[in-house]
Simulated scan of single mutants.
Amino acid sequence: MKQTTSSITHKKVTTKREAFLNEMERVVPWSRLLKLIEPYYPKAGNGRPPMPMETMLRIYFLQQWYSLSDPAAEEVLYDIEIMRRFAQLELFDDAIPDETTILKFRHMIERHTLSEAIFADINNHLVEKGIRVSQGSMVDATIIQTASSTKNKDKKRDAEMHSTRKNNQYYFGMKIHIGTDVNSNAIHSATVTPANTADITELPKLLRERDRVVFADAGYTSDSYKRGARALGMSWKVNDKRKVGKEMSASQKKQNRKNSSVRARIEHCFRVIKCQFGYQKARYKGLEKNRVQVFTLLGLVNLYMLRGRLEG
């Protein structure tokens, strides 16, 4: 990495942003991700030479961590020295990528579905670093809202998003469904659907062939799935749901509390996505563009949550 200016070198306080980026600098497997992207990245030719590939990948990750649009990403590279340093750029020595260059890199990721490859490669990296994989999964879903206004060019809401009701409140947008490992809580599977998709319908896509136990909240209650899981030799640790006009027994409540003490850890993933990375609203129109961003985010969530073990 290039040397910083003397004013930064001599400062005595490490900001939260700087501490975070220093951690990510150490835990992101840069070399293997660059090798993954390299076949699709533009090569130098007769036209304007492309920006360094690693710089563009670092800017793309900054966009995910700080919820930055393409114009905002260009602006912070001029305004914030710490982010510019993370991107391996010097203000007076290097060309700063403009928003169009940043957009083209993002479109390359979308066009070649590289976000899913990044997600899978990060998970392979975790295994190689000794993150133990269990034979159990926890599953859950969260709603990501999107603009419901019709004050746009088409005079209508996004046709691929839908409304759903939760706790007597309506939301318009999409759902992120994830499966995490019981041992490490690393996200291993994910799907993105309209918000009105029932959680239970995505369950088979979130489990692994080797799984022998599944934890989930009452939204995944299903007698048929329960019988099927037990027929396959799986332990069904899904919370019971109170039936209409009937209270749950003391044993059911006790078992629910026991299951929830394990299952609750999956909520940490959603906290990182929404609070740490600021992904509370969908940025793009349509499910596909948002799905691409979600898979990149989930890979980065795994690195962030397991950074202590990766650095240890």
Rank of each mutant, 00 (worst) to 15 (best):
S31N: 09
R32A: 15
R32K: 10
L33I: 05
L33V: 00
L34T: 10
L34K: 13
K35D: 10
K35Y: 10
K35A: 12
L36A: 13
L36H: 06
I37M: 06
I37P: 00
Y41K: 14
P42C: 04
K43M: 07
G45R: 10
G45V: 14
G45Y: 12
G47A: 15
P49N: 09
P49K: 13
P49A: 12
M51F: 09
M51Y: 06
M51S: 04
M51P: 00
M51W: 01
P52R: 07
M53K: 08
E54W: 01
E54G: 03
T55I: 03
L57A: 04
R58T: 04
Y60L: 06
Y60V: 02
F61T: 02
F61Y: 08
Q63K: 15
Q64N: 09
Q64F: 05
W65S: 01
W65C: 02
S67Q: 12
S67R: 08
S67F: 07
L68D: 04
L68G: 05
D70G: 08
D70S: 07
D70E: 15
A73C: 09
A73R: 00
V76L: 08
L77D: 04
Y78E: 11
Y78I: 13
D79H: 07
E81K: 07
M83W: 02
R84D: 04
R85N: 13
R85F: 08
A87P: 03
Q88G: 10
Q88E: 10
L89P: 00
E90K: 07
L91D: 12
F92S: 13
D94F: 12
A95V: 08
I96F: 03
D98R: 05
T100K: 12
T100A: 13
T100I: 11
T101W: 07
T101R: 05
I102L: 07
L103N: 10
K104M: 05
F105Q: 02
F105S: 03
R106T: 03
H107T: 15
H107E: 15
M108C: 02
M108E: 02
I109N: 00
I109V: 14
I109C: 00
E110M: 08
R111N: 15
R111A: 15
H112V: 06
T113C: 14
L114H: 03
E116I: 12
E116S: 09
A117D: 09
A120F: 03
D121R: 09
D121K: 06
I122Q: 02
I122M: 08
N123E: 09
N124E: 11
H125P: 00
L126H: 01
L126V: 03
V127N: 09
V127S: 14
V127A: 11
E128M: 12
E128D: 13
K129D: 04
G130R: 12
I131S: 06
Q135Y: 11
G136E: 01
M138V: 12
V139M: 01
A141L: 08
A141Y: 03
A141E: 03
T142G: 13
I143P: 03
I144Y: 05
I144L: 14
Q145C: 14
T146Q: 05
T146L: 06
T146G: 07
T146V: 12
A147H: 08
S148I: 05
S149F: 11
T150S: 11
K151Q: 13
K151H: 14
N152H: 09
K155E: 13
R157F: 14
D158T: 04
D158K: 02
D158W: 00
